[in-house]
Amino acid sequence: MANDTPPTGNRTTSVNLVRSSNPWTSANSAAGFVLRYLIVVRKQLIAVLGSSERADECLKILIAHLVSVGFGEHKKGRLRDFLIRAIRTTAKARISDLTVSERPTTDIDSVLSDNEQWLSLWRTGLLERAWRSLERKEHIDPQRPLFSVLHCATTKPKQPGQSLRERLKSERGVELGEADIQSLLPVARASFAQLLADEVAETLEKPTKEDVKAELKTLGLTKAFDGMSI
């Protein structure tokens, strides 16, 4: 599945940056909400600890804590900030149990929320969730293959020179005429952008339009909204 941000076309489409009313701070289950981003957190822990086994041990500690006490007094601001603090805390706890020779050389305190590696992982995680949401929409309404059209239009083809129509048929089993493809593309781009905006908004405490815009800029996700009315 593609991790890149699909560029928009020339047609102007509206996207509501604060459509979602489900910020992470209002989640009924802290552990359940964080599970959405478990892969991202695990990758950062592996980078810090140098071991998938140690990363998984930290994840167990984190999830157990969230099940027991929820987000606690840290239920504010951005979810990615909360999670990077949790990564530092659990990593330090795990490292303290290791011998000096076993300990990684990474400076845990330098792993901050604006760390390039963490921002890249977080960005990719948000994009992957938006792609999966778009794919689910297609499963619900297969007559409008938005995911298939956008995915084939924005990822590298397996066979150079293959037309989008041919690619849709060979890779996705979708048969569409050129006019239908061109009609669906802007709809697919707008749907993806809206789903991405929803994902970002839900990781903020009390998201406003300006807050979401700022987070999209920080994460390098603004390309998905080019040509959109927001």
Results as ranks from 00 to 15, higher is better:
Asp4Thr: 14
Pro7Gln: 11
Pro7Thr: 13
Thr8His: 10
Arg11His: 04
Thr12Val: 15
Thr13Asp: 13
Val15Asn: 10
Leu17Pro: 12
Leu17Ser: 11
Val18Trp: 01
Arg19Ile: 04
Ser20Met: 08
Trp24Lys: 10
Ser26Ala: 13
Ser26Pro: 00
Asn28Trp: 12
Ser29Val: 06
Gly32Tyr: 08
Val34Pro: 11
Val34Leu: 09
Val40Thr: 15
Leu45Trp: 00
Val48Trp: 00
Leu49Asp: 01
Ser51Thr: 05
Ala55Val: 00
Asp56Asn: 12
Leu59Gln: 04
Ile61Asn: 09
Ile61Phe: 05
Ala64Asn: 15
His65Thr: 13
His65Asp: 14
Ser68Lys: 13
Val69Tyr: 03
Phe71Arg: 09
Phe71Cys: 13
Glu73Lys: 09
Lys75Phe: 01
Lys75Asn: 15
Lys76Phe: 10
Arg80Met: 11
Arg80Val: 07
Phe82His: 11
Leu83Tyr: 03
Ile84Lys: 03
Arg85Met: 10
Ala86Trp: 01
Arg88Ala: 06
Ala91Val: 03
Ala91Arg: 02
Ala91Gly: 07
Ala91Asn: 05
Arg94Lys: 10
Ser96Asn: 09
Ser96Lys: 05
Ser96Leu: 02
Leu98Asp: 03
Thr99Asp: 02
Val100Asp: 00
Val100Thr: 07
Glu102Gln: 14
Glu102Pro: 00
Pro104Arg: 09
Thr105Asn: 12
Thr106Phe: 00
Asp107Leu: 02
Val111Ile: 15
Leu112Pro: 00
Leu112Tyr: 01
Ser113Gln: 08
Glu116Val: 05
Gln117His: 07
Trp118Gln: 04
Trp118Glu: 05
Leu119Val: 10
Arg123Met: 07
Thr124Glu: 15
Thr124Phe: 07
Gly125Phe: 09
Leu127Pro: 02
Ala130Pro: 12
Trp131Val: 07
Ser133Thr: 14
Glu135Val: 00
Arg136Asp: 12
Lys137Ser: 05
Lys137Asn: 08
Glu138Pro: 08
His139Met: 09
Ile140Phe: 13
Pro142Gly: 07
Pro142Phe: 06
Gln143Val: 03
Gln143His: 05
Gln143Phe: 01
Pro145Phe: 01
Leu146Lys: 02
Leu146Ile: 01
Ser148Val: 02
Val149Ala: 02
Leu150His: 06
Leu150Arg: 05
Cys152Gly: 05
Thr154Gly: 08
Thr155Val: 11
Thr155Tyr: 02
Arg167Tyr: 07
Arg172Pro: 00
Gly173Ala: 05
Gly173Glu: 04
Val174Lys: 03
Glu175Phe: 06
Leu176Arg: 11
Gly177Val: 04
Gly177Lys: 14
Glu178Phe: 07
Glu178Lys: 12
Ala179Tyr: 05
Asp180Gly: 01
Gln182Val: 06
Leu184Asn: 06
Pro186Arg: 06
Val187Tyr: 01
Val187Phe: 02
Gln194Asn: 09
Gln194Leu: 08
Leu195Tyr: 03
Leu195Gln: 14
Asp198Arg: 08
Asp198Pro: 10
Glu199His: 12
Glu199Asn: 14
Val200Gly: 08
Leu204Ile: 15
Glu210Val: 09
Asp211Lys: 13
Asp211Leu: 10
Asp211Phe: 06
Val212Met: 11
Lys213Val: 12
Lys213Ser: 13
Glu215Cys: 10
Leu216Met: 10
Thr218Gly: 11
Gly220Met: 05
Leu221Trp: 03
Lys223Thr: 13
Ala224Cys: 13
Phe225Thr: 15
Phe225Gly: 13
Asp226Thr: 12
Gly227Ala: 08
Gly227Gln: 08
Gly227Arg: 07
